[in-house]
Write a protein that binds this DNA or RNA. Structure first.
Length: 221
DNA sequence: AATTGGCCCAACCGCCGAAGA
DNA sequence: GTCTTCGGCGGTTGGGCCAAT
């Protein structure tokens, strides 16, 4: 049995107060992002290190872009999702200022529904033939491939791409993106510039794994 | 005005891989 | 080679807000 990431006692949970936010911001401004486990104690926060990390990365970071997604951002998310599946952190990495949580939420609340309305299966981005909303599908069938959110409104489908290829190495994923015939300019623009040179080199070196991934993606798209 | 149902999003949970001892 | 710890990730949930009834 794995130990909990932190002492559960004396740990605040739930929404962050302004004071807590300020403490975390102040600490990171001075000391930078370091060891998340030690930050709560050092910053005087009764929070789990993971919670601090999440709060900082998803909410407090100064470079976060908030507000509605632009059309081109949405388009890019759809393209990247078709390629990568539910790997939100990778998708978010190509949307400057957006977090994985934000992208994930936006996908589940907006894009998924939009695609369904358009008659496109959000799992594989193909026009669906038998895809149906949960209320019209059999509960038995649904239970194996999808889970519902709490009020049974929208099915949370597990992407076949993500389910099959979860935890593919970062290099393989970058290589797949760079070498993808269906995603070129949109993606290279968003790719962190500092990584492009190194990644292209790696893409060549890892051509074997890239081929494998591309082939798998072809099967799914 | 009160209730209900749906939507949205922040935050938690549990798992996994990487790194270090 | 094995074990432990940590950071990171995706899935899921709790709860606030708002529109419809």
């Amino acid at each position: 049995m794995r130990k909990p990431c932190c002492d559960k006692e004396n740990i605040n949970k739930g929404a962050w107060s302004k004071q807590e936010d300020q403490k975390l911001i102040d600490y990171i401004r001075v000391h930078g992002e370091g060891c998340w486990r030690s930050i709560p104690k050092a910053a005087g926060l009764h929070r789990c290190g993971k919670s601090c990390r999440l709060r900082w990365l998803n909410y407090l970071r100064p470079d976060i872009k908030r507000g509605i997604f632009a059309e081109d951002e949405e388009d890019l998310i759809i393209k990247l999702h078709a390629l990568l599946g539910n790997r939100w952190s990778l998708i978010a990495g190509r949307l400057p200022g957006r977090t994985d949580n934000e992208v994930k939420n936006y996908w589940n609340s907006h894009i998924r529904r939009k695609l369904i309305k358009m008659g496109i299966d959000p799992n594989n981005h193909k026009p669906h033939q038998s895809f149906s909303l949960p209320h019209s599908s059999s509960a038995e069938g649904a239970s194996n491939t999808e889970s519902m959110n709490k009020d049974h409104r929208v099915p949370i489908f597990k992407s076949p791409v993500a389910a099959t290829h979860r935890r593919i190495s970062f290099r393989e994923e970058e290589s797949a993106i760079i070498s993808s015939p269906t995603l070129n300019l949109d993606l290279t623009i968003a790719l962190p510039s500092s990584m492009i040179g190194a990644l292209e080199e790696k893409a060549i070196q890892n051509s074997e794994s890239t081929k494998t991934l591309d082939m798998e993606i072809d099967l799914n798209c």
